[in-house]
């Protein structure tokens, strides 16, 4: 008799809870869709009554402009240019950041000596170097790659160092007692323990690489999405300008999703926080 009663109670509770959860999800989803559609409709039809459409364009015009840019091939060409710069700069930044951190970690007292310089360089706005880079390397892709790499390098570097230094001392002591040498300790304990922090740093820095490359393109360039936006801005072509912004944001979002998924696969146990 009790088993039946219990079964009925569980079934009832489950049912009630499922219904509340479903209703809650439905409300939120409807809210999300409603807000998005409402904003687009407002922009399309009502915003022009307040502000001259020449300044704000409309969603349809922007979509049309994306299609036009895609049709004449300039979207693909410029996106390719930017993506190339960002990817190369990103990889260089991550590589040098990791290598530099490992070198520093293997040296004795290196961190202590370099600390004030690291902190100073860390808080310096890398963006301030943009004019210098365009002056050095001209209009081509080099200054974009370098600025993207600079934006990435330091975050990866400092998070790797910080991650390794934050590893519990006693973990290190245990393997030391077991007879591990410096390099072995680094390989067996320190890097795996710091891996989530390092991975998180690698993830968040792609957007920064994009910022670096786009900024360099805005300042001086002859191709790339930043150039597309800048040219449209000079021609007062608001729709194309927004089209460029939309494409840039989409790339950042897609890449972020891909990297986050890869990270969850590689480090299922960790959700690291990033310093910097």
């Amino acid at each position: 008799m009790t088993a039946d009663a219990a079964g009925a109670v569980v079934a009832g509770a489950v049912d009630r809870q499922r219904r509340t959860v479903r209703a809650d999800r439905a409300i939120v989803s409807a809210g999300i869709v409603g807000l998005g559609v409402g904003a687009l409709l407002f922009w399309q039809f009502a915003l022009g009554l307040i502000i001259d459409t020449r300044y704000v364009s409309t969603p349809l015009e922007i979509a049309r402009s994306i299609v036009a840019l895609a049709a004449d091939g300039s979207l693909l060409r410029n996106a390719q240019a930017t993506l190339g710069e960002v990817t190369i700069g990103y990889l260089i930044g991550v590589g040098i950041g990791l290598a530099g951190a490992l070198l520093l970690l293997m040296s004795t007292g290196g961190y202590e000596i370099l600390e004030p310089y690291l902190l100073a360089f860390y808080s310096i706005p890398k963006i301030a170097l943009a004019p210098l880079l365009t002056m050095w390397f001209g209009l081509g892709p080099t200054p974009k790659v370098v600025l993207a790499a600079l934006m990435v390098f330091f975050i990866v570097f400092i998070n790797t160092v910080a991650g390794v230094r934050a590893v519990d001392r006693s973990l290190v002591d245990v393997v030391r007692v077991m007879g591990a040498r410096r390099l072995t300790t680094l390989r067996v304990v320190l890097l795996p323990a710091a891996a989530p922090a390092i991975a998180a740093a690698i993830r968040v820095t792609f957007a920064r690489a994009m910022v670096g490359a786009v900024l360099a393109e805005l300042i001086a360039s002859s191709e790339g999405l930043g150039y597309l936006v800048m040219r449209a801005s000079r021609q007062f072509d608001i729709a194309s300008m927004f089209a460029g912004v939309v494409v840039i944001a989409s790339i950042v979002m897609v890449v972020n999703l891909v990297i986050a998924a890869a990270e969850r696969r590689l480090f299922p146990w960790a959700s690291g926080t990033v310093h910097g």
Partner: peptide, 22 residues
């Protein structure tokens, strides 16, 4: 917040510099 969240993330992933010209 859950309604607003996706749009905030969307706006957040626009590199701010790209809006400079705008």
């Amino acid at each position: 917040y859950r309604v607003a969240e996706p749009y905030i993330l969307l706006a957040y992933s626009i590199p701010a510099v790209a809006l400079g010209p705008v």
